[in-house]
Amino acid sequence: MMLRIHKILNNNAVVVLDEGKEKIVMGPGIAFQKRKNDIIPRTKIEKIFVMEEENEKFQELLRTLPEEHIAVAEEIISYAEGELHAPLNNHIHIALTDHLSFAIERIQQGYQIQNKLLNEIKVLYKKEYQIGLWAKQLIRERLGVEIPDDEVGHIALHIHTAKMDAASMNKTLQQTTLIRDMIELIKQQLHIDIDEESISYQRLLTHLRFALNRIETGELFHTIDEDMLRLIQTKYEKEFACAISMARYAKEEYGIQFPDAELAYITLHIQRLIRKS
């Protein structure tokens, strides 16, 4: 079936009516020298979107944002889907494109972009962060703009939350912030500096992330027998006390309850951290 242009959004994006439903069709130069009702050559079509809930918002972005920003965002999304071997939620075409365009404009105006969760993002979302680094190079090549690593972290979070099984951006930010705060609590309570490049630190972060996911989904935790729990409490008294403080903070601030067995495993991770530091 031939697709005819219903509405032109920009040089590279048009709206078509297909079986009474609006679809957004994208491809380089797809609308060049075209008018309403013209037929779109199928060879020019790269992507077709059906945006059920946010169709108007996406069309507005495509009409108003710089075309080069949109093209770069779409290239990053395609690369991410290839690297993750999975499609991303359609919402990323709005969320990442809007975020990226605004960030690029702020950088060009001389604003500093900051990301307080950067260290945690690097560890918890390694693959997404690597995609962000690829995006950094692409933006430099395509737009001549140098984005900071803090912005790479923001891109990584957008990609992570667009994965089909991932939590929302708010949930992801909340979880990552809680993990950062818990690490800060370890530093303060035990008066240590933590090597954030160390395997011990990375294992603790990963363990906390999976523990929080298990609490969120109601999955069963590893069990630990009473004798082993008492041994850990006695042998690593200050580390166990620190784990209890972390659990109390999670309960008071976020209503998250860590089971006792989990505190024992966190204690062992803290002990390794102290040994390495």
Score class of each variant (00 low, 15 high):
residue 130 Q to P: 02
residue 142 R to M: 12
residue 106 R to A: 10
residue 103 A to C: 13
residue 99 H to Q: 13
residue 113 I to E: 04
residue 94 I to E: 00
residue 136 K to R: 15
residue 144 G to Q: 02
residue 99 H to W: 14
residue 89 N to D: 04
residue 118 L to A: 04
residue 96 L to G: 06
residue 126 K to T: 15
residue 109 Q to E: 13
residue 125 Y to F: 10
residue 96 L to E: 07
residue 141 E to V: 00
residue 142 R to A: 13
residue 147 I to L: 01
residue 100 L to D: 07
residue 125 Y to T: 00
residue 146 E to S: 11
residue 142 R to F: 14
residue 91 H to V: 05
residue 139 I to E: 12
residue 103 A to M: 14
residue 117 L to W: 12
residue 138 L to D: 02
residue 93 H to F: 03
residue 104 I to V: 13
residue 124 L to A: 07
residue 127 K to R: 15
residue 124 L to H: 03
residue 143 L to M: 09
residue 107 I to W: 05
residue 134 W to R: 02
residue 100 L to Q: 13
residue 107 I to D: 03
residue 104 I to F: 07
residue 102 F to H: 04
residue 98 D to L: 06
residue 146 E to C: 10
residue 106 R to M: 12
residue 98 D to I: 09
residue 94 I to P: 00
residue 122 K to F: 06
residue 136 K to N: 12
residue 122 K to Q: 13
residue 137 Q to K: 07
residue 106 R to Y: 09
residue 136 K to T: 07
residue 139 I to V: 05
residue 108 Q to Y: 00
residue 124 L to F: 03
residue 89 N to E: 02
residue 99 H to V: 12
residue 104 I to T: 07
residue 119 N to G: 05
residue 147 I to G: 00
residue 108 Q to H: 01
residue 104 I to A: 09
residue 145 V to E: 05
residue 135 A to K: 02
residue 139 I to M: 10
residue 102 F to S: 05
residue 128 E to G: 09
residue 115 N to A: 03
